[in-house]
Design a protein around this nucleic acid. Structure first.
Lengths: 138, 138
DNA sequence: TCTTGACCTCAAGTCGACTTTAAGTAGTAA
DNA sequence: TTACTACTTAAAGTCGACTTGAGGTCAAGA
């Protein structure tokens, strides 16, 4: 497959494919002249990357978790730790979803005054109010 | 409360608080000289913002969903639509979590070759491989 | 042979979410 | 009065994830 075929089948723009290659997330099987040639495994790879991105992992994290060949490069311990993080995240999302559904119908003048809504926020946040960027320091 | 107190109780840096104010996400009740004075409602507000961010909403979306006073500014229909989005997101997260747990133990040489792992990726992605930035066009 | 189209590289630009920096002000303490 | 501390503003910088643009290459068709 040449790059355009990958673009068509995946919906991922060529510029992004080149960028992902640069970051070591995908790898063409070869070249035909200048042109990159991909095997169709790349589509699964892209699905995996998209899934990772959609679940909040950075490209670097994804690259770490699954090497170019799909083999994890980090310890199973760390993979399991990531999985646990996701569990927490799932709880937050569930709380937020419930909060939104509630807010759609709650008659309270301001939601911050509604005890149910307050509880949802409290349960979900549970002390973590830091903005996301602050997590860069590691 | 002055800003430092908010920083202490919330963990959110002063620079971020000022930035949030600029974006219309929070609002001091007044000033004492130059200094901002906040009511302690701001802490709940920050929890709400953090929850929103953690669940993947942008600051603009959060500002849209809940005005400065916590009253939703958008229709319940839209709130419910957001809730449905969250449901999908929860499914993706769950899939990713399962994938990671599986990857931690699966003996297959490459995960992309493991049928179980493949199914997880397929179920979760379901055609959506577009990078996140592409969604800016709306 | 010349042009076209599909691809290439490398550098620079953009966008959101902040952070950093430089320079200023208001209240308090010595 | 001076110095210090806790804040302020406005502008510029940073970081990740891409996108855009300028200019180059190569195979195929007129």
């Amino acid at each position: 497959m040449e790059i355009t075929e990958v673009v068509k089948q995946s919906g991922v723009p060529a510029s992004t494919l080149r960028y992902y290659e640069e970051k070591g997330l995908i790898k063409p099987v070869g070249r035909k002249g200048l042109k990159r040639v991909f095997s169709n495994d790349v589509l699964q790879r892209l699905a995996l990357i998209a899934l990772g991105r959609a679940t909040g992992f950075s490209l670097n994290e994804i690259a770490q978790m699954f090497g170019v060949d799909g083999q994890p490069r980090i310890q199973s311990e760390e993979l399991l730790a990531k999985a646990d993080e996701l569990d927490k995240q799932i709880k937050r999302l569930t709380a937020m979803r419930n909060g939104l559904r509630h807010a759609a119908y709650c008659p309270a003048p301001s939601h911050m005054e509604c005890p149910k809504f307050q509880r949802i926020v409290r349960v979900a946040g549970a002390g973590r109010m830091q903005p996301l960027r602050s997590e860069k320091l590691k």
